[in-house]
Design a binder for these strands. Structure first.
Length: 497
RNA sequence: GACCCAUUAGCUCAGUUGGCAGAGCACCUGACUUUUAAUCAGGGUGUCCCAGGUUCGAGUCCUGGAUGGGUCACCA
């Protein structure tokens, strides 16, 4: 739909007029199937290294197609660039080669129009490998002007709202999303090769569980029932472990009704994976091997630059207890016996902010988040999370104030979360009850009671290691992207007013 | 949710002390058969984010709002 203002816009009107004149000449402005033989990159890869004479000798016929992105008319001959998914290639169109009619079609084509060119490969005097047109086929009309050719599309809002323009104008953007795709396919292949079964579980839940987050609520009309968009995949995959599927994973979207920032989008992609008979140490090995493998396969290196930091994924990754890290950075020893009151006093002493009702474990976690987290640049497995913040993880045998859980930190950010899964249904029920009490005291993100899940555990779940990796943050890290919006094709934005 | 910044032509951006709305690219007309941010000559195409206010006069100053970005909060 054109707005009132746009109907008067000369640039749009000119293009509509050109569309009409194409029709008058019997050319379909939104043409049909076109068979090409080469992409731009295939031609450049094959011929760019050859000399002008060598290329001329081969006289290689090619058919290419793409969007017209630059045009240099020079009287009875013109140079231009066509862009396809692989890149750009120059074309050279001469009136004496293509004839008066096609030459006019070509010279009246606008930047943004789609063209097919049949011709031969050659090299110009200035050394650019190009295609000399024998035939110009008009493929599709562009009724709107593209962003400026040199400065491109800079406006961040427009780049996110009209990602297609961003992809046309900014080659780095396309590269980032190709890398994202390779990261995910490499991950999938690795897990498939290691015997994991990929599954799909519901994204609409009756109880929003498996994580601590506020959910989106939706409604099923026929059942007259509220449903929650999932905040995690966890509880369904564990039911599959109960069902005897021993190595299972899902890569999928989860939804959390929380703030938006450079590191948070309301919907994001997680890998969750569960392995029967394993524990959180196995999950550390798997995480380390998987991410290192992805870096090697996709980036061709184990050394990653992120925001000015050089991160070495090649050396063995540090594995440190949360309490030991807090001691290292603040001198406070949470391994020893400590009352909630003493912990609170130490927090005040060290300027660690707390919320009312926090106990020993919450306070340790606040120490870690406020004093340590951002300093963990090189990959570090932080394990031994306090019981209070880990309602789905097994207690540590030696010290039940902690759990057999870890989070992976790289460049000061959480990239993975894993634990030895709690498979004792009696303990799990107590944890849920504690969470429900927290909820009634105002913690909106506390975990709800889930009787159906407890019933599944009561049938018996083998000891199991579980792992979650935030794919978007992994892609951010591996593509040196500052914002999660730069690794999501269509990030969540407010509705345009 | 709080604070800071931005919003001017299709795009990238200038706009002085409050005094006729600007440039480059794109587009239109013409010249040009190896150019490449092609070049040369000519042409300005606009809801200055929106709504109020101050003023003889507002793109500019004031108030409120919208959208976006950043920082923080939130995100175990």
């Amino acid at each position: 739909m054109m707005s009132q203002g746009e109907e008067q816009n000369e640039l749009l009107q000119v293009r509509r007029d050109k569309l009409e004149s194409l029709r008058e000449k019997g050319i379909d402005p939104f043409g049909a199937k076109f068979e090409r033989t080469h992409t731009a990159k295939e031609i450049l890869d094959a011929y760019d290294a050859l000399s002008k004479e060598e290329i001329e000798e081969k006289n290689q016929p090619v058919v290419i197609a793409g969007r017209l992105v630059a045009k240099r008319k020079q009287g009875k001959a013109s140079f231009a660039h066509l862009q396809d998914q692989s890149g750009r290639i120059q074309i050279y169109v001469r009136k004496d080669q293509v004839g008066d009619e096609q030459y006019e079609t070509f010279t009246t084509a606008d930047l943004g129009d789609w063209l097919g060119i049949s011709g031969v490969v050659f090299k110009t005097n200035r050394g650019e490998t190009s295609v000399k047109a024998k035939e110009v086929t008009f493929l599709s009309k562009s009724l709107r002007p593209l962003p400026e050719k040199f400065h491109g599309l800079k406006d961040v809002e427009l780049r996110y709202r009209k990602r297609y323009l961003d992809l046309i104008m900014n080659p780095d953007v396309k590269e980032t999303f190709l890398t994202r795709s390779r990261i995910i396919s490499t991950m999938r292949r690795y897990l498939d090769d290691h015997g994991y079964l990929e599954v799909e579980t519901p994204t609409m839940h009756t109880i929003p569980g498996g994580a601590a987050a506020r959910p989106f609520i939706t409604h099923h009309n026929a059942l007259d029932m509220d449903l929650y968009m999932r905040i995690a995949i966890e509880l369904h995959l564990k039911r599959l472990i109960v069902g005897g599927i021993e190595k299972v994973y899902e890569i999928g979207r989860v939804y959390r009704n929380e703030g938006i920032s450079t590191r948070h989008n309301p919907e994001f992609t997680m890998l969750e994976l569960y392995k029967a008979y394993a524990d959180f140490h196995d999950m550390m090995d798997l995480t380390e091997n998987l991410i290192r493998h992805i870096a090697r396969e996709v980036l061709g290196t184990e050394t990653v630059e992120y925001d000015g930091n050089t991160v070495d994924l090649g050396r063995p990754w540090a594995r440190k207890h949360m309490a030991d890290l807090v001691k290292e950075h603040t001198g406070v020893d949470f391994r020893r016996e400590m009352s909630d009151g003493e912990a609170r006093r130490l927090a005040e002493e060290h300027g660690v902010e707390l919320k009312p009702g926090m106990t020993f474990g919450h306070i340790l976690n606040e120490f870690f988040e406020q004093k340590v987290e951002e300093k963990l640049i090189q990959p570090t497995f932080v394990y031994g999370h306090p019981l209070e913040i880990s309602p789905l993880a097994k207690k540590n045998e030696e010290d039940p104030r902690f759990t057999d859980r870890f989070e992976l930190f790289i460049v000061g950010r959480e990239h993975a979360n894993a634990f030895s899964e709690l498979n004792d249904p009696i303990d799990q029920r107590e944890r849920f009850e504690t969470q429900v009490r927290e909820k009634s005291q105002g913690n909106e993100e506390a975990h709800p009671m889930d009787e159906d899940f407890l019933e599944a555990l009561e049938y018996g779940m083998p000891p199991t290691g579980g792992l979650g990796i935030g794919i978007d943050r992994l892609v951010m890290f591996l593509t040196d992207s500052a914002s999660i919006r730069d690794v999501l094709l269509f990030p969540t934005l407010r509705e345009q007013g």
